[in-house]
Structures are given as structure tokens and as C-alpha cells.
Design a protein around this nucleic acid. Structure first.
Lengths: 156, 156
DNA sequence: CTTGAAAAACATGCCGC
DNA sequence: GCGGCATGTTTTTCAAG
């Protein structure tokens, strides 16, 4: 385990491609599809859950069906780069469920947030709360008109 | 079913909160936790899978463990707004597995892409392929230094 | 909506290769 | 490491309150 990522081999990749699509198929179907025995597939799945390759198995919901109709992308620049500010920012991200994704970036934009809310009014409320919690130098919010792709299946 | 989203009630929401976390717990544990019978939980899950509230149940992988070490956000502006260009762009998005998310935006930026690749070199190759496939007026790519949050669990 | 029970499908662990 | 088989668990279906 000294190099980049030699934890998984081609059989593992085949299994991952299957379980990324659907976890509700039986072991037997997966085993047949990838050309290994049930036991082997089971052992490999066990290992990949242990070592964190598979983070978890979960139901993936349609945001619209549960009332989250709008997605915004929020680009943030800050003037404060001290530890106290970052702690406050991290806490806000953690505690606000509307923020479904947050990245610290290299470049002119310091942070990007993906925010999923019920409505544009709900976003306005979210926005006010956010800027009241942390000092922000410059913000630019973009409303998504259309989600063209959302691949939870990674290229494995 | 004439209003916004009255397909799901509070019991459904409780069930969804459970299965969003982990799909591998038995029906019995979920039923106990939400205070309903096994049969009821099963019937409700069945309905929510039928009507698309639950898109699917799948394994969620750690991108780094499968060698996808870098995430980029690509902001795109285009000068061509005709149907032919859009078709080509849609096809490119569909066919390039490195693009894990794509949105059409309102505002100065026309599109935003999330791109997950093995390395910065792999991103360079991806980028060249993308711009060779579709005419783009202005692109700005930002490398993510840190994924601060990635909530696949939606606020339900 | 619930309980309960019965059938089928399944995951899991052990065996020998 | 692998595959086949035995066992206990779980899902799934059904009848009845």
C-alpha cells in the first residue's frame, strides 16, 4: 500500500460499478454479472466497506419531490483570512442544512457553496442568515435554471 | 394532488430521514425508530420508490479511494446560443464521465460544471477535449483545495 | 393502520479446494 | 485467494382486527 491507490483491482471496480447503480439487487445477480462467486463478491464488498471505499449505502431522493425546488450556487470572497473567521464559517456550513456542498477553492473565488431550498424566498432568508453569521467581502449567487446532469455514479 | 408537494406526510419524512442515512438497516429497526409497523413502512417505501421520491438505493463511494483525487469547478460563458450548439454541449456533458454535475444558470455565467478527475494532468486533458467539442466564449476553472461539506442527505 | 404468521429470497459463515 | 453448501435472518405477501 505504498503507491497511489492500489487498494482496488479490476474485479473490485466491476463490483463498484454495479453497486453504484443499485444496491437492491441480490448478491447473486451481482456475482453472475461480474463473473465471480457470491462469497467472493461478499468478501470484497465487506473489505471495501471496512476500508471506506464504500462510504455507505443510502436512498437517493429526488429533491423536487420533497419540496426542494431551487438550487443556487454561491461564490464567496472574504477579506478575513484568520482562524476565528474560518471557524465561524465552518460552523455555519455545518449547521445550515440548505448548504449541501461546500468547497474551498484556489483562485480569486475563495469558496463555493451549493444551496438547495424550497423557493427563492427561502433562499433570501438563508442568505440573510448566512451574512449575519460571517463577514463576507463579496458574494455572487446564481440560480440554477436546469440541472443538466447529476452523476452520483463516479467514473470507477 | 393539486398543490405544491403534498405527496408525502410526516411519517414519510421520518422514514426518508432514516433511509437517507443507511439503507442496510432492517425494516424492523426502521419501523421501531419511526413508530410504525413493518408492513406500513414497507408499503410507504414501496410507494415512494414507485412515484420517484426515492430515485434509487445505491452505494456511495469515496472519490479519493477510487483514484479521483481532484475536483474542479468550471464556469462557462458561450457566445453561441443556438439549438445546435446546445445539443452538442448536452451530448458532451452526457458522454464525459468526468463531469459529475452540470447546471444551466441565470446570470452572467451560463453554465457551471463540477469535474472530478484523477489529477491536474487529467483535468488538462479533459479540458482540451471539452473545448475541442464545443465552442466556448469564456471559461474559468477553479481547483477545489478542500471539500468542506458534501451532504447527500437532503433536508427532508 | 395494525398484528401476526407463513413463504420465499437472501446474507452470512464454515467447509474444503 | 476461491466456490459450494448449510444456517439463520430478512423481506415480502397475505389474512384478519
Amino acid at each position: 500500500m505504498s503507491r497511489g491507490t492500489p487498494d482496488i483491482d479490476d474485479d473490485d471496480r466491476k463490483i463498484l460499478r454495479e453497486v453504484q447503480k443499485d444496491t437492491n439487487r441480490s448478491l447473486e445477480r451481482i456475482a453472475t454479472k461480474v463473473g465471480l462467486s457470491k462469497t467472493t463478491v461478499w468478501n470484497r464488498l465487506q473489505r471495501m466497506m471496512q476500508n471506506g471505499t464504500i462510504l455507505r449505502q443510502a436512498a437517493i431522493l429526488d429533491p423536487r419531490k420533497i419540496g426542494l425546488r431551487e438550487t443556487f450556487f454561491v461564490s464567496i470572497r472574504t477579506s478575513a483570512h484568520d482562524a476565528a473567521w474560518l471557524d465561524a464559517f465552518r460552523a455555519a456550513i455545518e449547521e445550515m442544512p440548505e448548504i449541501t456542498e461546500a468547497h474551498r477553492l484556489a483562485g480569486t473565488t475563495d469558496y463555493i457553496l451549493k444551496v438547495q431550498v424550497e423557493s427563492t424566498e427561502a433562499f433570501d432568508a438563508f442568505y440573510k442568515t448566512l451574512v449575519s453569521r460571517v463577514a463576507i467581502y463579496d458574494v455572487s449567487s446564481s440560480l440554477s435554471m436546469e440541472e443538466m446532469k447529476h452523476a452520483l455514479e463516479l467514473k470507477v
